[in-house]
Amino acid sequence: MKIIEKEDKNYPKKLLKIKNPPQKIYIEGNKNLLNKEIIAIVGSRMATEYGKKCAKLFASELSKQGFTIISGLAVGIDTIAHIYSMEEVGKTIAVLGSGFNNIYPEENYYLYKKILENNGCVITEYPPETQKSKENFPKRNRIISGLSVGVLLVEARYGSGGAITAKHALKQGKNLFCIPNRIDEKTGYNTNLLIKQGANLVTCPQDIVDVYMENIEENQKLTQKIEKNKEKNTQKAEEEQQQQNQHKNQKLKQQQNQQLNQEQNTIKYQEIYKYIGELPISMNELIKLTKKPITEISEALCILEIEGLIKNLPGNKYIRIMKKFSIN
């Protein structure tokens, strides 16, 4: 763990610009990430399937495009944002609302470890022994928005934590992106409200990428230059890269195999699969639509679920999930 004080020259400059920057920040992991192009992905703890799907899409796509993703290690959207930004190495930052010795929520302790393993970064303004408390969580939201260049709000109820982060973002003059939601969903009330008030409506990751295109390119050029210099100096690096490439190839092959398998199953169960869409559908409705015996349907649903093509929701309903971002 490292401690950076406000007077330190390593203190992230972006944080100095906000209204009440923390006196000290406690950092674990890769502290270089704090100065990268950071996008915050925040949202409801009780996210709907739609929200989770969007968070997945944006987290994995934006991290691929070179952004670093920051979020609050809470359950729901935050967790998804962390998990899918970790598809790339060293692209995720978590901001805690408690000390390092009291990770909250407890079930995300594992995720916290994984972020560090993944060369990510976890920061907090609280000393390690600080317990969780109601006041601290809204406060840490100002850090989340402060460190980022833009905030993506996925799903937020009225007056929720996500809404607070959005408020901070506006005060700090950051870009606010909102994903539109159905008007009868409570979880999407605040995002829709913000869009109405003038926030940027985004429908795909590219919308965000376009805004920051230039910055990212410059950044990447810089890093490429540095890397080139390094490569010239050391041959070892090349060998390592070759090994990495081999690993990647193997992984790719495995993925291809899986995809093949998936495709075969999809064809076999196509008749049933085609009825399962973006809106949850119950097993009994499927029986009625397909007019197939129940045994066949339950078999198909199980196999499709195992393959990660559909998901079983509470209430015995099924929903199609995007193939590319199949289950964790």
Partner: peptide, 17 residues
């Protein structure tokens, strides 16, 4: 295979709840 698949379906709550 189909028997196993159906049987797994009856344990779904296990993982969900």
């Amino acid at each position: 295979k189909s028997h196993i698949a159906e049987a797994i379906g009856y344990r779904n709550l296990d993982k969900k709840y």
